[in-house]
C-alpha cells in the first residue's frame, strides 16, 4: 500500500462527512427516519405509499438540487468517470439489486447503521467494502495492466 498524498483531502472530506452526519441526524431526530439512500430510492421506484412517501421524494429532490445550490457559492469540483457505458449499466444494475437485497448502501449501513452500532450493518459494510477493494484491484491492476 502506497498512500496517495497528492489526492488526499483530509479536511474537506472530514467536513463533508460531518455535514452528511448532521443531515442523517436531522432526518432521524426530526422525521424519525433513517437516511438510507438506496432504501429511499427503492421505495420510490416501488411506488410504496405510506406516511413517508412525500418525504422520500423531497429528500431525493434535495439531493438532486445540491449541485445547483453549490453553484450559488462557486464552481463544482470535477468528477472523473473512468467506466464506459456498458460498465456503467452493469454497475448500476449490481448496485440497484445489491443494495435492495442487502437492505442498504454506504449511507444506510455505512453511516446510519454503524452509528447505531448495528452488527448487521457492520457485516454489510465489510462485505461491500471487501468486494469494492477486490473489484478495483481487478479493474486497475489486472485488466488495465494487462491491456
Amino acid at each position: 500500500m502506497i498512500i496517495d498524498w497528492q489526492h488526499f483531502t483530509p479536511w474537506t472530506s472530514l467536513a463533508g462527512g460531518v455535514l452528511i452526519g448532521i443531515a442523517a441526524a436531522a432526518y432521524l431526530l426530526l422525521n424519525g427516519r433513517i437516511a438510507g439512500i438506496s432504501s429511499i430510492l427503492g421505495a420510490v421506484v416501488g411506488f410504496r405509499k405510506d406516511e413517508a412517501t412525500l418525504w422520500r421524494v423531497l429528500f431525493l429532490a434535495g439531493l438532486i438540487l445540491a449541485p445547483s445550490a453549490w453553484l450559488l457559492a462557486g464552481a463544482l469540483p470535477e468528477a472523473g468517470i473512468a467506466a464506459d457505458y456498458p460498465q456503467l449499466v452493469a454497475a448500476g444494475l449490481l448496485v440497484g439489486l445489491g443494495t435492495r437485497y442487502g437492505s442498504g448502501c454506504t449511507s444506510g449501513h455505512g453511516v446510519c447503521g454503524l452509528s447505531s452500532l448495528s452488527l448487521r450493518s457492520l457485516v454489510a459494510t465489510l462485505c461491500f467494502m471487501g468486494t469494492g477493494f477486490a473489484t478495483v484491484y481487478v479493474v486497475r491492476h489486472l485488466v488495465q495492466a494487462g491491456a
Binding site: I37, A83, V95, T99, G102, S103, V123, F133
Partner: peptide
Amino acid sequence: LGSLAFGVGWGLSGFCPG
C-alpha cells in the same frame, strides 16, 4: 450476497446511490 454484489458495482463505477 446483496452487499457483496453492491460492492462489485461500486468498485466498477465508483458510484454508490447517494
